[in-house]
Design a protein around this nucleic acid. Structure first.
Lengths: 350, 350
DNA sequence: ACAGCGGTTGGCAGCGCTGCCAATCGGGTT
DNA sequence: AACCCGATTGGCAGCGCTGCCAACCGCTGT
């Protein structure tokens, strides 16, 4: 299919659509009404397929629209009506594939329903989040998707005061403001610990990234530690790379961790990116996995499934969470918590 | 205080911050003006720090804003003024980290300047792109960032007619509509071929994804093939996975390719994800890299740099491209082409 | 005392579209 | 023939904010 034809170098511009003056007034609904010989409200009704009008009117209007190249102005439409067909989405980062996945799930549903997504990236900074939320609210969105359950008091205040529907994502371990869609990070951390313990590992360490900003990772670790304690085990060691999670941090972090504690038998990583880095370190050093060292991640990224030995991890339904949130944010129901659960993938690294 | 004010279905609750009723009328600029005992235009001026006003007025207004919890309505503001502080961004996918990287570069710059990004995902479908562009234009954005140089005639028409600034991204191999920011995919493909040839590889195959949709990957391959031809070499073999690029496709694709042509000495992948999958296949099969098989990718993802043997690839400045585009889309200059170039990373797999 | 001035301020007409309401149209009824 | 009813249609008042312009204020200079 080579439909992808190019229509570029177009020196001779179109005949009808007015001389290329950037100053020319944009075509408005009134222009279309005049051209189609009908009233403005009729044009509006036809374009939105709302209310009643004859088939004849419809064609007149459509012809006029095509002739003038009319593009509705949703800014004006939104101001005049109520709902805005805009959904604000606030995520902490775009570097970790988890959030693009979330976006993917959400935009898929939203675009299908004629909604547009306005995004904001907080960089895991709650003050930035507060500013972004305020900024997004000024567009009077039909709803807002935000990541996590922890927010500044100011953020909560604006969210509450705005009256817009809010969906908080990827965590269900605390009470939410309105709708909550995600899975339990605490349960995931605990399940990971029990799995490792069940497999017989005893000297288990943690390798994570900057948890002061990533509260969900912090919850996983807390629950992981508690579950180990229940099994009578301590967390053998702990290494935190003071940076966002990355393959790099996982690789260099594991090197440091092992230099300090060579007798570990398993490492729990803050997520799959980190774990992949750790796996690469093992490969590079010739450490057998899981014989000499077992690895356990979090998120269930595709890449983990395809490593020579599939990564032991927990698959989180991120895309589904985005899609579910997109669906619920426009629903009229009462506040609710949707726990999508997660799946422990045994893999071959632990 | 009923000085001939607006008549609205306001159930008589004029208490200050109003009881948490979702139905209560939103606070408007007029409310702030009344509260601050000044005119509406004065409030507007203060809030935008535009025009002149006394320090005393400023504090009165700020106090009123805080007291009422006023959130400006940018929909109304945009309609009344001209520019919209919204930038539309159209990308083909969110599954390939390349596009989140692009978004990251763009949103970083835009948010710092008080702009908001509205995104659309085409899923590599030019009809969807056309619909998205039309939809985004209806928000009267201050500018549009789109990926690639190939568009439907209809897309080009709306873009032209809209008069908004457009930046086309990630490719500079064809003429653009307005501003173009990216790098030459053709040059990258050719450089990759010359590198492999220079290293002495002779039986070089290609392993790619669905090129009918990804025109940039198709250009790289075309140039790669031409460069091989210049060196008097044919493309030894070619495998196309009829799906989007992924680690999975790279791994399974390489398996098929090698089953068919076991005597290859190098494989050029459509990108790093594919190459990583290929690398995993080699590891799993115990094939020595690059001894038995050399691998070459495209994009220069972090993960490639951290593999036990760094991946030979081409690093593309994606984040910079997004940032540059975000900067230029609001500039008033003439159309231009910004070629950010790329960097060949020798790595250790080829 | 009066015109002149820069700094402030308020009034108000839109921006382009939608929602409401009244007017009109075309038959079908009695 | 008078009347009724649902389907269509147009007019127009806003939606909340900005831009323009006239008005005002307190001083200066003459």
């Amino acid at each position: 299919m080579d439909e992808g034809e190019r229509v570029r170098p177009d020196p001779g511009d179109e005949a009808l659509p007015a001389p290329e003056g950037i100053l020319r007034r944009a075509v408005t609904l009134a222009d279309v009404a005049r051209e189609a010989q009908v009233g403005e409200s009729t044009v509006s009704r036809v374009l939105r397929s709302h209310g009643s009008f004859s088939q004849k009117t419809r064609s007149q209007v459509e012809a006029a629209v095509a002739r003038l190249g009319y593009v509705p102005n949703r800014i004006a439409g939104t101001l005049a009506s109520t709902g805005s067909r805009l959904i604000g989405i606030v995520i902490p980062s775009l570097s970790n594939i988890v959030f693009p996945d979330l976006l993917r799930g959400a935009t898929g549903v939203l675009e299908a329903d004629g909604f547009q997504s306005v995004i904001g990236v907080t960089d895991y900074d709650q003050d930035r989040e507060e500013a972004l939320v305020a900024s997004l609210l000024s567009w009077r969105p039909a709803g807002l998707l935000v990541t996590g359950l922890e927010h500044n008091p100011g953020t909560v205040r604006s969210l509450r005061a705005s009256g817009v529907r809010v969906v908080e994502l990827l965590d269900v371990d605390e009470p939410g403001l309105d709708i909550v869609v995600g899975y339990s990070n605490r349960a995931a951390g605990a399940a990971s610990a029990r799995h490792l313990v069940g497999r017989g590992y005893r000297r288990i360490a943690y390798l994570g990234h900057d948890l002061s900003r990533d509260r969900r990772a912090a919850k996983r670790l807390a629950a992981f530690r508690e579950a180990l304690a229940e099994a009578g085990l301590p967390l053998a060691d702990e290494e935190r790379v003071p940076a966002p999670s990355s393959v790099e941090a996982g690789r260099s972090g594991l090197e440091r961790l092992l230099a300090r504690a060579p007798d570990l038998d398993a490492v729990y990583f803050s997520n799959d990116d980190m774990a992949l880095g750790g796996y690469f370190h093992c490969l590079a050093r010739g450490l057998s996995v899981p014989g000499q060292l077992a690895l356990f991640g979090y998120n269930g990224l595709d890449v983990g499934r395809l490593m020579p030995q599939p990564l032991a991890t927990i698959r989180t339904p991120r895309v589904e969470a985005g899609a579910t949130a997109a669906r619920l944010v426009r629903a009229g129901g009462p506040p609710e918590v949707v726990d999508l659960g997660f799946e422990l993938i045994e893999g071959a690294t632990a």
